[in-house]
Design a protein around this nucleic acid. Sequence first.
DNA 1: ATAATAATTGCAATTTTGTTGCAAAAATTT
DNA 2: AAATTTTTGCAACAAAATTGCAATTATTAT
Lengths: 138, 138
Amino acid sequence: MSTTSLDVLKRNQLSITDSRKKILELFQVNTGALAHGDIEKKTGDLFDRVTIYRTLQTFVDKGIIHTIPTADNSVLYALCKDECTQGHHHDNHIHFICDNCNVTFCLDHVASPHITLPKGFKEKRIDVVVSGICTNCN
Amino acid sequence: MSTTSLDVLKRNQLSITDSRKKILELFQVNTGALAHGDIEKKTGDLFDRVTIYRTLQTFVDKGIIHTIPTADNSVLYALCKDECTQGHHHDNHIHFICDNCNVTFCLDHVASPHITLPKGFKEKRIDVVVSGICTNCN
DNA sequence: ATAATAATTGCAATTTTGTTGCAAAAATTT
DNA sequence: AAATTTTTGCAACAAAATTGCAATTATTAT
């Protein structure tokens, strides 16, 4: 499966626009997760803030990116693996946030743990966020 | 150990004020977690928005409540277990958010899982948030 | 290729959320 | 009961996010 920004947009039946191409490429180039503010900085005044908000929301809706819950409650976004489809995220991996450099990693090879819930609770989704010190800062 | 709001405040060497008593009682009465907005609604115009922010922050500092990271990045607070002391939270339990009724549960008896991280990553804290359908909505 | 249609963007205005300084009020200490 | 300390409410401010709408851009049909 090809992975150019253009292909991803087409595969998801999205109109091809400068903002969508550019923002998607940012995610593909950067290893870590990105906040809305990061994207604003990296794109300068190419696009309006509102466009960035809407583009991110569109990508989340389509299953192209997913949000990451963080301890300090800032909103982070990261690319989903290919298996994600519209309305159905399978980002079954954990996230790691470095307290030092503040980069967020999607640890794709660390599966979410299985958790036994009390009777009556049905799991649909599980988010695991580990924070500490990353390899680069060690 | 007694659990009236007054006792909790005294134990933590906090001045006894209406807002602190009222807000603490809200947490004690409600099973789930509360957002700043919830508290604002439930207290009407009894207290200023700022007071609520400061009270919540004070409680977090003292280890009376803790924050919960959520996937939609709203800030949630919930009562800590008694073992929490100032500056040292031991909220080593997972959280469950019901997609239906939107209530957040602290599953105190479900411990956070142990996760094996890739080489070089050092864990300091782990947050697990499971979402799905709770007992009441089942 | 071009016109018609549909979708997206940018702007302005607004709303929501959170913070800060300071004087007034309330709680605690003496 | 007075002195001191802490907390509160107000006002102003700042940041983050949302909405409606006209203008622009992309897609579809001709």
